[in-house]
Design a protein around this nucleic acid. Sequence first.
DNA 1: CGTCAGGTTGACTGCGCTCAATATACGTGG
DNA 2: CCACGTATATTGAGCGCAGTCAACCTGACG
Lengths: 274, 274
Amino acid sequence: MSALSCQQNLCSCCALSSVCLPGEMNPGQIRDVSALVRSLGPLTRGQRVFSQNTPFSSCYFVKTGAVKTVTVSERGDERILGFYLPGDVFGLSSMNRRSYSCSAIALEHTSICELPFRQLEQLARSIPELQHHLFDLMSREIANAENISMLLSSNTAEERVIALLLNVSEHHRQRKLSPLQFRLPMSRSDMGSFLGLAVETVSRILGSLHKQGLINITGRTVVLLQPARLSQRLAVDPDAPATKGDDFCWSPGHSHTVAGVSGMPAANTSGTAR
Amino acid sequence: MSALSCQQNLCSCCALSSVCLPGEMNPGQIRDVSALVRSLGPLTRGQRVFSQNTPFSSCYFVKTGAVKTVTVSERGDERILGFYLPGDVFGLSSMNRRSYSCSAIALEHTSICELPFRQLEQLARSIPELQHHLFDLMSREIANAENISMLLSSNTAEERVIALLLNVSEHHRQRKLSPLQFRLPMSRSDMGSFLGLAVETVSRILGSLHKQGLINITGRTVVLLQPARLSQRLAVDPDAPATKGDDFCWSPGHSHTVAGVSGMPAANTSGTAR
DNA sequence: CGTCAGGTTGACTGCGCTCAATATACGTGG
DNA sequence: CCACGTATATTGAGCGCAGTCAACCTGACG
């Protein structure tokens, strides 16, 4: 709870502090922020961080594991809004409402930092860097959601799946983990719900990428065998002179995104939509 | 520029002040904010408010008219991210970056308020209500972009078009204008680009809705003849027992959105995606 | 060993894209 | 004001991608 006991409760001790906190805060300020943090978890697969339509209180940072946010429409029709990996924030989209607009559910063993938003907001008044950082995080979320919209608005199923793979990969790269070999925290069905595709389509496309030698995939373990060719398929119009696709260079303009899987590459079609 | 000359330059004199500003500010604070505002326009159709990849400086409120935001991918493949009507904010998604991630273009004769973001941020330190309001606006933008993602992720073309129509309608209702009869500020092609549909599809669907007696549409002038049945098509699963669709009641949970066309109704499919 | 969720594969169908032709609206100059 | 050209919008024919339905496979767990 409070940071009385030991240094372990200070954000400055956290490997992710460079992501969660602005860089320019002094130790006293860090202590003030740390005092707001409540650690949650470890949560197990399926456990909820918060539920749709319950009162809004906090935003959350993923420490380890993975989380999905899900909304259920009136008819029980459910859609996944985003996946969040270590260092990502979620819950921000609900702060202007009384209650959460979605549920957040752990995809695997997961630990999380909870920050009561009102108190964070209050603290931000006296720490300009924190205020700026909060604007920054929210603005990233907007840009991120816009990128997802772009991806979904008119890309082929294959492009969407590749975008998701590359995004998880990019997230791992930013966290100094292997960008070429990793485990997907979500099920095929989750991927489909997020990408607006049927489960069968996701499965078929992963199978097809495997057959073509672009990836290895067994269950949820992925190896990107030819990342360059993968990003090419995302970025390059087959009809146009190919912009030679360096690894992890999609959407150079948007690449500052830190928001993990959220940070989808700027989508694009092959000129011809769909 | 500054609010020296007359009252007309004060936000409190603006009909939209209830949307742009937090309700709780005193006259002095309103004056401070007003001093930051620069009026742009009138812009004519096609004129740019800002361009993709130029340095970020400000966020913008639409006073009159309409604006679209557009990103161009590496290949000149362009997509519309959003439409903004009077009272809407745009430009917020770029504040964590050095340059704008999209261009903003007037769709018709349009006037706009420009607010330099850094100065606004600075001012927000001394006006907690303003700080909160900024968080609020950004959070709406996130929720809004998420709703658009949901709409695009797996709804039929007809549902998307209806959602757009109802959204413009809802915007007019909130501004005390006729929600049943209005002009669409954007071309069919813009609608298609935004909704992830081909122009022809948009045109066909509008024609089909017309033939079915649900709307009247001539050029860009729309009359919603049966708004209840329109929103039914969005919200109701044909297979499920119909939740009788009152007008303008889609996505009750999300309906606080003020962000105009941005505030897409929570999307949903007919259980069966697509 | 049975059960059940998760994943894969196949056959078929339909929505929405493409290409192409035509119609209408809009702005401009004669 | 009308003739004209261009941009925008409509309509039709055909086809391909991805959804649906259904069967089957795999692995985790009691």
